[in-house]
Amino acid sequence: MALRRNTAARSIGSAVAAGLALMRVSFARGADRRRLEQLLTELVQQLALMTEEIHRANLTQYYRLIADQNDRKLDDPTLAEASSTLGGLSDARRRQMIFANQQYGSLVLAHRVGVIGWDELLGHLRVLCINSVFAEYWDRTVDHRRSLPPDSVEAKIGATVDVMMEELAEEPDEWWVVGSVPGSEPEPEPPAHG
């Protein structure tokens, strides 16, 4: 983690130094001007990459906080009950639902930060969908997903899982091919700016 911060700090320092150099010679002409434009383009590209990396790091940290809370809920049934919106569950079943949510969330995170691509995500989701606990979790949380913005990555992944669940209900013996909708990959998230 410290290495990532140091690399980012060096990149930011390099970008600032390049920006200051550009400001000092803003009235350059000809070849100097083209070189300055090239440096400015490179600077903007570095800043965009750093912004994306910071966004992925923030997203990972957010999921880490959620996972820590879920771990506490798994250890303490009173905390699980206090945060659950699913009624009529035994303590053991509530823990299973929390764990199913955590498995799904981990896959979504892995895709969002670029650890796994769309096809690999579909493969993991296919396996997860054949699990009866996950199937119950998915059915019980349909209203939760309705609150997601329809154009969000998570809503699009959820819609894909909905298709998988429907196809599994029709052809349970062909679980390895459900959800293979061509061109169904959600658009990548735009980089965070700010």
Score class of each variant (00 low, 15 high):
Val163Thr: 14
Ser90Trp: 11
Ala57Phe: 02
Arg94Glu: 03
Tyr104Gln: 00
Arg34Phe: 03
Val177Thr: 01
Thr60Trp: 07
Leu20Gln: 07
Leu43Ile: 04
Arg33Asn: 09
Asp119Tyr: 07
Leu43His: 06
Glu189Cys: 04
Thr7Gln: 08
Glu187Gly: 11
His144Gln: 13
Glu52Asn: 09
Phe27Tyr: 02
Pro190Met: 13
Leu122Asp: 00
Glu37Phe: 01
Leu125Tyr: 05
Leu3Asn: 11
Pro150Val: 12
Gly19Ile: 00
Trp118Leu: 09
Leu89Ile: 13
Leu89Val: 12
Ser14Val: 04
Thr41Lys: 07
Leu122Trp: 02
Arg10Cys: 03
Ala57Asn: 11
Phe99Glu: 10
Gly194Leu: 14
Gly19Trp: 01
Phe134Pro: 03
Ile66Met: 07
Arg94Pro: 03
Leu47Ile: 07
Asn131Phe: 01
Asn70Val: 03
Thr160Asn: 14
Asp119Leu: 12
Arg35Cys: 02
Val178Tyr: 03
Met97Phe: 11
Arg56His: 12
Glu154Tyr: 11
Val178Lys: 04
Leu121Lys: 07
Leu74Ala: 13
Leu65Ile: 00
Val25Asp: 10
Ala31Thr: 06
Asn70Thr: 00
Phe99Leu: 10
Leu148Val: 03
Glu167Gly: 04
Val133Asp: 10
Gln46His: 05
Ile12Glu: 09
Leu49Pro: 01
Thr60Tyr: 07
Cys129Leu: 05
Leu79Trp: 12
Thr41Gln: 03
Thr7Glu: 09
Tyr137Asn: 07
Asp91Ser: 15
Ala8Trp: 02
Arg35Pro: 03
Gly117Tyr: 09
Thr160Met: 14
Ser184His: 11
Ala31Asn: 03
Ile54Tyr: 06
Ala31Glu: 10
Leu49Glu: 14
Thr160Ala: 15
Ala57Leu: 13
Thr160Val: 10
Arg10Phe: 05
Met1Asn: 00
Gly19Cys: 01
Gly19Glu: 02
Thr78Gln: 14
Ala17Cys: 08
Val153Lys: 10
Leu43Gln: 04
Arg35Gly: 00
Leu121Thr: 12
Pro77Gly: 06
Ser14Trp: 04
Ala192Trp: 11
Thr85Gln: 13
Leu36Lys: 00
Ala15Met: 05
Leu59Lys: 11
Val108Arg: 11
Ser180Gly: 04
Ala110Lys: 15
Asn6Ile: 02
Ser11Glu: 10
Arg64Gly: 08
Asp32Arg: 13
Gly194Phe: 13
Asn131Leu: 01
Ile66Tyr: 02
Ala9Glu: 07
Ser180Pro: 02
Met50Gln: 11
Ala57Cys: 09
Asp75Gly: 12
Val108Leu: 13
Gly117Trp: 09
Asp75Ser: 12
Ser184Asp: 13
Glu171Ala: 00
Glu167Arg: 01
Val178Met: 00
Ile54Ser: 01
Leu65Val: 09
Trp176Phe: 12
Ala28Gly: 06
Arg4Asp: 13
Met97Leu: 15
Met97Thr: 02
Asp71Leu: 00
Pro190Gln: 14
Glu120Trp: 04
Arg24Gln: 14
Ala2Cys: 04
Met165Val: 06
His124Val: 00
Tyr137Phe: 15
Glu42Thr: 09
Asp71Thr: 00
Leu121Pro: 10
Gly13Tyr: 06
Asp162Val: 06
Ala155Leu: 09
Met97His: 15
Leu86Met: 15
Thr41His: 04
Ala155Glu: 07
Leu86Cys: 14
Trp175Ala: 09
Gln69Met: 02
Glu170Lys: 08
Pro77Asn: 05
